[in-house]
Nucleic acid binder design. Structure first.
Lengths: 205, 205
DNA sequence: AAGGCGGCTTGAGGCAAGTCAAGGCGGTTG
DNA sequence: CAACCGCCTTGACTTGCCTCAAGCCGCCTT
């Protein structure tokens, strides 16, 4: 491989950024630096999957706010929080908000690297799942209103006849939509369609 | 209701147990005290859903070990950890292991009560889901070998004919097992069967 | 050993669903 | 305006799935 993974470093202290950049780059990571959380968030939609390493005390958006914002948009990026003067309540809040770890400076280089390594390893599958889910959501969005209704009926376990009665049209017509749904959703069977519907959040599970 | 919920308190300090007992009882909770984590674990299989409130430093099994053990058996009980001398690494480890909160003594009574309240509220649905999942697993276990095979074929999206070919028997026979599966699993439709299979962990999702 | 219980197996006929092919309607574009 | 495209709609035919009815085998109880 060309890189062990990508790390996005967010810290307002330039010396710290440079230091982390050197450390992580030497460890085989592709590093991108940000001096401000807002700039990172602006760039986020275009960023490839990677691990976020952010300081907690910064002007503007702080580390805790960043966690909240990332969580709000269901970002799959694992986030590690660093702090100079860590206190327990702050660490607990960060962890509650989904931080993967909470590191107190100064920390050992090896420890940071191994934390980043495991964070990336653990979150990567989730990130791929998230990507797939969005792909599925796109397919659902491509359905026409009728197709959408028929799909809902199908995953609810209704027969063609019942769905037809539901909307007062011919059962034959339902079959057409049914076929369209299977094609557009790229489902080879009803079972697969149900699984797709679940990942798209169309079912309470 | 007769109680706001159940709280299991684990602490080797008797004065602390009495104090917590008084506080929580006054707040409308049903409280059970344990002076040792091992005794709690022994009693666990028979306990109704409730919130666990444990000290971290105890003789025998400490709070961190308790978290690991509870996690290993997928207990749905929310766990709050208390500590006298909290340090950040310990708090972080506890949170990583699934603790709902990490409280430093002394803490305000109201804060503790509100934490317990929200922990119970958030974990209760998960606990019910877990109970349902076990019920479903029991149904799966009641299937005969052939029924089990047919169910796997069905959720995989195979037609009766294909499943029949798979085991080299008549398609008609598959239909019988199919009906049995639907009955035993209490599924009213294929769609429902697929959902049950997912909750039972028979599919990669 | 005889009977019963549970699992495994199958045929024929009725109902539901997928595969052929095809027409009307509304909006967009050239 | 005329053509096109996507959406909605439908009939006849073929294939697949579920409702009746029923025989075989191994195991356990009596």
């Amino acid at each position: 491989m060309t890189t062990n993974g990508i790390v996005y470093v967010i810290d307002d202290d330039e010396a710290m950024r440079d230091s982390l950049n050197f450390l992580l780059d030497s460890s085989g990571y592709s590093v991108t630096l940000f001096d401000d959380a807002q700039r990172f968030l602006d760039a986020l939609p275009g960023l490839a999957f990677g691990c976020v390493l952010s300081d907690v005390r910064m002007p503007g958006i702080d580390g805790i706010e960043l966690l909240k914002l990332m969580k709000a948009q269901h970002s799959p990026f694992p986030i590690l929080i660093m702090t100079g003067h860590g206190d327990v309540p702050l660490a607990v809040e960060a962890m509650k908000l989904g931080a993967v770890d909470f590191l107190e400076k100064p920390f050992e280089d090896d420890r940071l690297v191994s934390m980043i390594e495991s964070a990336i390893q653990q979150a990567e599958p989730a990130a791929k799942n998230e990507a797939i889910s969005q792909d599925i959501a796109a397919r659902v969005a491509s359905l026409s209103p009728r197709e959408r209704q028929v799909m809902e009926g199908l995953v609810a376990g209704l027969s063609n006849k019942l769905i037809a009665r539901e909307y007062d049209i011919s059962p034959r017509t339902i079959e057409v939509y049914r076929a369209n749904v299977m094609t557009k959703m790229q489902a080879g069977s009803l079972s697969e369609l149900v699984r797709l519907a679940m990942r798209a959040g169309l079912l309470k599970d």
